[in-house]
């Protein structure tokens, strides 16, 4: 039962993470390969603030704000780049951020990580049990889903898709493509920060090792497998992949296997990405009216 609740919490957090990436990669066509950086910024901001005595609400809001502001600052140089180059620039940013977190020991304790992050407390209620935490993260996930659904279904969302499908045409119709991309990137970064905050207060311990390229790959796979550019896609992907990943962790395997299990699982993820791209690039749920395979 606890395992199921745990899985549900992780699914909720990763749904938020994946929904935020989907705004960028699915709706705007921005190849963000450093998305984990904003997850980390949210997690570290909130963890550091609450560890020094600030209430959870402050940590949460600061985490969102920090991730959003960093997203804005990165987008200014990075969005000068098209497609592949933007991908590498964001990938590099993800690595740099991890380097900062590992090196600025005075702030982040470096590779030692931050233990004992307090459980969230809102109006005197402490979310310290699994069901309570599930309720909190499910609420956040639903709110995220609702807000992002509103965003992408609005005229703004249609403009994002227009920029993705044909930037020149969108410009001719009077849409400032760069401004739309920046907004999309900031929205995506902010919600990735939310996922990071929830993650930090759930595991109560974070270290630079939690925020590697592996996390970006997982969330990328969640989005493209579920169906990028669709609303239910990232949630479906999160359910499928988190169940797969976390259930493997709870298999009782001989210790000499577990050393091989990590790389093997990543090999499966990598292969899944390749196979999906070759045979069904649109993912499980197909975007309606979108352009595919061109």
């Amino acid at each position: 039962m606890d395992l199921l609740l745990h899985l549900a919490v992780v699914v909720a957090i990763y749904s938020i993470f994946a929904l935020s990436l989907n705004v960028e990669i699915g709706y705007t066509g921005l190849f963000n390969f450093g998305h984990v950086a904003f997850f980390a910024i949210g997690a570290y901001t909130s963890a550091l603030l609450t560890l020094s005595g600030a209430p959870f609400a402050v940590g949460l809001l600061a985490g969102l704000a920090a991730a959003g502001v960093c997203g804005y600052l990165l987008s200014i140089p990075a969005l000068k780049l098209q497609g592949d180059y933007f991908g590498i620039a964001t990938l590099g940013f993800g690595e740099i951020l991890r380097m900062v977190v590992s090196n600025e020991v005075w702030l982040t304790k470096g590779p030692m990580g931050l233990p004992g992050i307090p459980r969230p407390e809102i109006l005197g209620f402490i979310f310290d049990t699994l069901p309570a935490y599930l309720a909190l993260s499910a609420c956040m996930a639903l709110t995220t889903f609702a807000i992002l659904a509103f965003v992408v279904l609005s005229p703004f969302g249609r403009a994002l898709k227009a920029v993705r499908d044909d930037e020149t045409a969108a410009e001719i119709l009077g849409k400032n493509a760069l401004r739309f991309k920046i907004k999309s990137f900031v929205i995506g970064s902010t919600f990735a920060g939310l996922a990071g905050v929830l993650w930090a207060h759930y595991t109560t311990f974070i270290s630079p090792g939690d925020f590697t390229l592996t996390e970006t790959i997982l969330v990328l796979l969640i989005v493209v497998m579920g169906g990028k550019g669709t609303l239910p896609g990232p949630v479906l992907g999160a359910v499928a992949l988190i169940f797969f990943q976390e259930s493997v962790r709870f298999l009782r395997l001989p210790p000499e296997w577990t050393r091989l299990l990590g790389p093997l699982q990543q090999m499966v993820f990598g292969l899944l990405l390749v196979v999906l791209m070759v045979f069904r690039p649109e993912g499980i749920i197909r975007e309606r009216g979108g352009r595919h395979g061109d």
Binding site: D84, G87, V224, L264, M267, F269, G270, L272, L273, V278
Partner: peptide
């Protein structure tokens, strides 16, 4: 690009 990324993950691991 995503396919190349997947290939990279596969080969590294």
């Amino acid at each position: 690009l995503i396919a190349a990324m997947g290939l990279s993950v596969f080969l590294r691991n």
